[in-house]
Design a protein around this nucleic acid. Structure first.
Length: 924
RNA sequence: GCCCGGGUGGCGGAAUUGGUAGACGCGUCGGUCUCAAAAACCGAUAAUCGCAAGGUUGUACCGGUUCGAUUCCGGUCCUGGGUACCA
């Protein structure tokens, strides 16, 4: 009988769970290694084949590290708060906790079937009160902290209050929202409410005004994702942009450190670059422009203060507070209309439609601080209110967007940097000499920037400034299914709930919708109070729970602390973090932020959550299409479809194999197809295909269950790794799975022989000493696979296994001394078959406790001699040749090789490539 | 629009990071075995010209650097992810 994966995989999975094989505890005698997967959101569709890609890769690495003797923490859990469960609850009335629980159970079954080596005793669920108790606790720590710029760290709010009481805030250098000067005397005279407002100005979690997508019809705030073409995706109701009081997190306090510390971690350059761009540090200046006939001054931020003499107009964001104030009467109608229209377009839309230039003149003018010229003030939606000061001095000669705007509205363009060969406007002039710029004329750009900032500062027109694109993170959500924010309001003053009273349990509500007056769903809860005062009714965002979960795994069942200090000290940070690149600027920034905060406040001793990060690519769906001839129940095969007028229909990919439709399965798939007829090609119905996002509605979701049932978990694991480089996105297709399936069967047959009588395969290994050739095959494989695992190049190691098994099969090698170590090196990839093989070989213990075999170089060398290459009588270097070639042949080939001749006078070749005794190429 | 990826046979992908392009697997074709089929095994398989030996062209497209480019540089096209309340 062939390899019976069903029985064997079940047997070992049971064995692992019974023996708690993968349970770990801190062990100071061993080096630790922490392998973490980004935990999944348990969706109703179940796990699909895309999920395990990263999980298999990290599992391979975790198992590999165990084989090397590390104490490996490899946990798993669920990011179980989220919007889909809430949407489902709104539709069906089922409590999100119920559906979430159901989904989690399904996920767990599916994960178990793949044979992961997780320590399930450390499972976490973000929606579990015993977990979110600590999420709330961290929120309170943030609420009770401020960022001291002088010490460059977060400190307790009580130290700030102490400073206020003794000296006021004049000497305080803190990250805050509004400027507000007061003395200690003033402070003492403020009432509680004022004090509270002042402190909120400094706290790391605070209340602010934030722009949101408000849908009056649904009475709720929508994600940009939920808004399509200006209307809500759900229901199609109009959506408007609106300011709203929201809880926020002062992540901007950490902008510089988040930027700098990227140097300390081994994340991919592209991901670091994305974070750098997201943080968007830019050096420049803030400059005040007087407004003509007004007391007001317009504050702008520019990265190019040197081009100030090229500023020919000003542009305000439509949301800018001055728009309404400065607009001249005659222009009011037009400006108001424009602002109203711009307001309801999302930032993304506004930026995306850059070719569609719009704007209006306000009728007002600013005064150029150096020339005294009147500069028209415009409103344009290419200026965003959230960045800088929401106002720019436009220098059309040296900025593409300003240029386009100026050309469109016929505004003057003054060139101030010479030396550009390119056309005006497309020339950003980062280098060159200043012209038309009075005291800056003749200076290089860099010098000019310095000089103009000095001038601006000395004349008190503004100051040099470092600006970040990063914005504070809006933290409140008008949703039900999230962590309650542990704040209550006493006479309108927000106060933190006492830590000993945590968690604030998510209350029951009659409906998961906002109230009639547009209050969040939690406002429906009866007696949602603390000490008789109302509790905050917005909840935390999805990213809250995931911003610290890596710490909870260390000590998941601790009721006294989020994790005990000795576990935190032992496990420290994640050594390998595996997850999708789509989290580059969301989760991966927030988790770094919270980690730094917890470090500042002394709760942990690490400043970065993860040393090394690998992004696995996304697996896309590969849909299959059938073609129904219009107004019939007749389906035509792909190659013949052009002869007919057809409708394209998605067909369940599970009843299609290699694009060939299983006609019987199709007929019973749906009632309406029972009597379907087919026009075939060569007796087959060929389906079309398309690569798209995996989605239930496209019938292209492939669940691992079916694959496991058909081919086994090991086969699925090998196949997902074999599919291509881990980091690349790729469509799922099962066309090649027979390859890995064949490999497993071949491996099985390698140490089984056929029983002549009943065709049974009998276990059969020999104790003979392997030959040199056999050892070579083994050690070649060990070397390659080890290198591949360390490079996360799992696809090529699967190839290596295949070559190895093919070669051993050719030699009919079933020797124990080869098969035993082979089982070990295969075990990270295909743990079940490896374990079974190990067991058959008479080893009781699990392969997970074995050491990874070292490769031996001696077996890899075939023949070698060093050949000295001489130039002008001097020996320049030795060639090490590893394939059979004679001295005479070398001489002949070296002399005959043109490249060699040309190169001998220059640098030394590193390598000469020799094939069948011929030098074919030279590496310098 | 902006930021970050990717583009190599019929298909998934290799290529020691500048040195024999196409490893390995799938598929297809041919063969062995069989009454037949399946399975298994063996062989062929980038395109093109040629009976053959062998030649030519080939890593999205255009150009550059180099003795030599899939690899480095400049530009273009297509495509995936992110774009701040999806997770």
């Amino acid at each position: 009988m062939e390899y019976n994966f069903k029985d064997i995989e079940k047997k070992w999975q049971l064995y692992w769970s019974k023996n708690q094989t993968y349970k770990v505890d801190i062990d100071s005698s061993k080096k630790k290694y922490y392998v973490l997967d980004m935990f999944p959101y348990p969706s109703g569709a179940g796990l699909h084949v895309g999920h395990p890609l990263g999980y298999i890769a990290s599992d391979i690495f975790a198992r590999y590290k165990r084989l090397l003797g590390f104490n490996v923490l490899h946990p798993m859990g669920y990011d179980s708060f989220g919007l889909p469960a809430e949407q489902y609850a709104i539709q069906t009335g089922q409590h999100p906790a119920v559906t979430t629980e159901k989904n989690i159970n399904r996920y767990r079954q599916q994960l178990d079937a793949i044979g992961f080596s997780y320590d399930w005793s450390k499972e976490v669920r973000t929606s579990d009160p015993s977990y979110y108790k600590w999420t709330q606790w961290i929120f309170i720590q943030l609420f009770n902290s401020w960022y001291n710029v002088s010490t460059n760290q977060a400190e307790s709010i009580s130290s700030l209050i102490g400073i206020f009481e003794t000296v006021g805030n004049n000497q305080v250098s803190a990250v805050h929202t509004h400027d507000w000067n007061f003395t200690s005397h003033d402070w003492k005279s403020f009432n509680e409410k004022t004090k509270s407002e002042i402190l909120l100005n400094y706290r790391l979690s605070y209340i602010s005004d934030a722009m949101v997508n408000w849908c009056p019809e649904l009475g709720t705030v929508l994600a940009n994702d939920e808004v399509k073409d200006g209307v809500s995706e759900r229901g199609g109701f109009p959506v408007e942009r609106k300011q709203m009081k929201q809880w926020s997190m002062r992540i901007t306090a950490y902008a510089q450190r988040l930027l700098e510390d990227l140097e300390k971690i081994e994340w991919s350059d592209s991901l670091k670059e994305q974070q750098r761009n997201w943080i968007g540090r830019s050096e420049g200046a803030e400059i005040r422009f007087k407004i003509f006939n007004s007391e007001l001054e317009l504050l702008i931020f520019t990265t190019r203060p040197d081009t100030i003499f090229g500023a020919t107009y000003m542009t305000l964001a439509p949301e800018h507070e001055y728009v309404d104030i400065i607009t001249v009467e005659d222009y009011k109608n037009e400006v108001n209309g424009y602002v109203l229209e711009a307001k309801n377009r999302s930032e993304r839309e506004r930026m995306a439609e850059v070719k569609n230039i719009t704007g209006v003149f306000t009728g007002a003018y600013a005064i150029h601080p150096f020339t005294g010229n009147k500069i028209p003030i415009w409103v344009g939606d290419y200026v965003l209110s959230g960045y800088g000061t929401g106002a720019v001095m436009a220098v059309p000669a040296h900025d593409a967007r300003d240029y386009a705007f100026a050309r469109h509205f016929n505004l003057p363009i003054v060139e101030v940097v010479s030396g550009g060969e390119l056309e005006l406007g497309s020339y950003d002039a980062k280098e060159g000499k200043l012209i038309n710029s009075e005291f800056l004329d003749g200076l290089e750009v860099k010098e000019a920037i310095k000089k103009v900032i000095e001038k601006i500062e000395s004349r008190n027109l503004g100051a040099g400034k470092i600006n970040f694109r990063l914005r504070d993170a809006v933290f409140g959500r008008q949703r039900y299914w999230g962590e309650p924010i542990p704040i209550y309001y006493q006479d309108g003053i927000p106060l933190a709930v006492d830590e000993k009273d945590l968690p604030i349990i998510l209350p029951e509500v009659d409906k998961y919708l906002p109230t009639e007056d547009g209050e969040p769903p939690l406002a429906r809860a009866k007696d949602f109070q603390y000490k008789g005062f109302p509790i905050e009714t917005t909840t935390m965002p999805g990213w809250a729970g995931s911003s610290w979960y890596f710490l909870r795994y260390m000590d998941a069942n601790n009721n006294e602390k989020f994790a005990s200090s000795n576990t935190i000290e032992y496990w420290k940070e994640v050594d390998l973090y595996m997850g999708g690149a789509e989290h580059a600027t969301g989760h991966l920034l927030y988790v770094r932020f919270w980690t730094k905060f917890l470090f500042d406040r002394g709760y942990i001793s690490i400043e970065e959550p993860a040393k090394k990060l690998i992004n696995q690519g996304m697996i896309q769906g590969r849909s299959n299409i059938v073609y129904r001839i219009k107004d019939t129940n007749k389906f035509v095969s792909l190659g013949l479809k052009n002869d007919f007028e057809v409708t394209e229909l998605h067909v369940d990919v599970n009843i299609v194999e290699n694009d060939i439709l299983d006609i019987e399965a199709f007929k019973s798939w749906r009632e309406e197809y029972r009597s379907a007829e087919f026009i075939l090609e060569e007796g087959k119905y060929i389906c079309g295909n398309e690569v798209e996002k995996m989605s239930k509605s496209k019938w292209n979701v492939v669940s691992p269950d079916i694959m496991i049932d058909k081919y086994g978990a090991d086969c699925l694991r090998l196949y997902e790794m074999f599919l291509g480089p881990l980091e690349l996105s790729k469509p799922w297709n099962t066309n090649g799975i027979t390859g890995t399936s064949n490999f497993i069967r071949k491996l099985w047959k390698l140490y089984h022989k056929n029983n002549q009588q009943n065709q049974e395969l009998l276990f059969d290994v020999s104790n003979d000493e392997p030959t040199k050739a056999e050892y070579k095959i083994l050690h070649k494989t060990i070397k390659k696979v080890k290198e591949d695992i360390e490079k996360f190049s799992f696809n090529t190691s699967v190839s290596t296994f295949m070559i190895c098994v093919n070669e051993l099969t050719d030699l009919k090698c079933n020797k124990r001394k080869i098969v035993e170590p082979l089982a070990v090196i295969i075990s990270p990839y295909a743990p079940h078959i490896a374990e079974e093989l190990w067991f058959l070989l008479g080893n009781a213990s699990s392969v997970t406790k074995t050491l990874f075999p070292e490769f031996n170089d001696e077996y890899l060398i075939e023949s070698e001699f060093a050949y000295p290459i001489s130039v002008n009588g001097k020996t320049k270097f030795n060639l090490n040749l590893s394939l059979s070639i004679t001295k005479e042949e070398v001489e002949k080939e070296v002399l005959a090789n043109e490249n060699m001749q040309r190169l001998l006078n220059g640098a030394s070749p590193k390598k000469i490539i020799v094939v069948l005794g011929k030098i074919v190429n030279v590496v310098v």
